[in-house]
Simulated scan of single mutants.
Amino acid sequence: MKTGVLLSGGMDSISLAWWKKPDIAFTINYGQLAAAAEVAASTSFCKHLSIPHFVLDVDCRALGSGDMAGAKANIHAPASDWWPYRNQMLITFAAMKAISLGVTHLWLGTVRSDGSHSDGTIEFVNAISGLMSLQEGGLTISAPAIELSTRELIQISGIPSDMLAWAHSCHKSNVPCGNCRGCNKYFEVLGEIGYDLDRLR
């Protein structure tokens, strides 16, 4: 079995990669506003763990919606950070590269709270894994932390605090804006695991 992880550079995917130690990591620059910071965080993390890291550039910003694209939210958006078919798109791009490298299992950093979006549910992960497995390469998609909260994932992974600090969670900018859903989650989780938020802000 050869494993890969879809690494966004956020708390969830970095913690998952620390926990599971994949053979390869993939980061996608798909035109999101915080792409440079996500790539930088992912690259530094992979270099530290000696994980081969592939950055794929496919500019889809014109197709985006909401905070991550710097655009008005789509009429179907359940939240301000929703980008239509985003997870399906990212999994497909990563899979295109993964099968050329012999990857058989691709991991997603999806956690329980991502279930607020349809593409963050167990049903979605199972469905897209079934779809991928029907195609050449027989790739399996899974989300090992999908039943965990981010706090639980961090604790189970054992990721050191200095490594977790490399995570970039802002949806709107390469410099954390402090008021998007990504930044709010970042500070909320740090508070849950015992950080002094007054010192961080």
Rank of each mutant, 00 (worst) to 15 (best):
S157Y: 12
G102H: 12
K2I: 12
L164E: 08
A40Q: 14
A34Q: 15
A40I: 07
K47H: 15
V39F: 10
D119Y: 03
S149L: 07
L148V: 01
D81I: 12
L7E: 07
C183S: 11
L56I: 14
S50N: 14
A79P: 02
I75T: 13
F93A: 08
I159Y: 03
R112V: 07
S169E: 11
K72Q: 00
H105T: 15
W82M: 09
Q32D: 07
I156T: 15
I122E: 01
G191N: 14
P52I: 10
G115Y: 03
E188F: 05
C183W: 05
P160K: 04
D198R: 01
I24Q: 14
V175K: 03
M132F: 04
L108P: 00
I28M: 12
A143R: 12
A98S: 04
E123K: 13
G31V: 03
L33F: 09
V111A: 02
S161N: 14
E38T: 10
S44I: 10
I24R: 15
W18A: 13
I128L: 09
S133Q: 12
A95K: 07
M68F: 01
Q88V: 01
F124R: 01
T27W: 06
I24L: 15
D114N: 12
K47F: 15
A94S: 08
H53L: 00
N179S: 07
A127E: 06
W18K: 07
T110P: 00
I154M: 06
T3A: 04
E192P: 06
D67P: 00
G182M: 09
S161R: 14
T104W: 01
A69W: 03
A17P: 05
D12W: 07
R201C: 15
G130N: 09
W83P: 05
I14W: 04
G66M: 00
L131E: 12
G64D: 11
M68H: 03
G10F: 08
Q32E: 11
G138N: 08
S100V: 01
R199F: 08
L16E: 06
Y85F: 10
E152V: 08
E38Q: 12
F45V: 05
S116Q: 04
H171A: 11
R199C: 07
E188H: 10
N184R: 10
G178L: 00
C170Y: 02
S100A: 04
L164V: 05
Y85D: 12
G158A: 13
V5C: 00
L190N: 02
T27Q: 03
I156R: 15
L190S: 04
E147C: 13
R112F: 04
M132W: 00
C180K: 01
G194T: 14
C183N: 13
S169F: 06
R199A: 15
E38N: 10
V58T: 11
P176Y: 11
W19Q: 13
D23F: 10
W82A: 10
M89P: 00
L101E: 13
A95I: 02
G9L: 11
H171Y: 08
A143K: 07
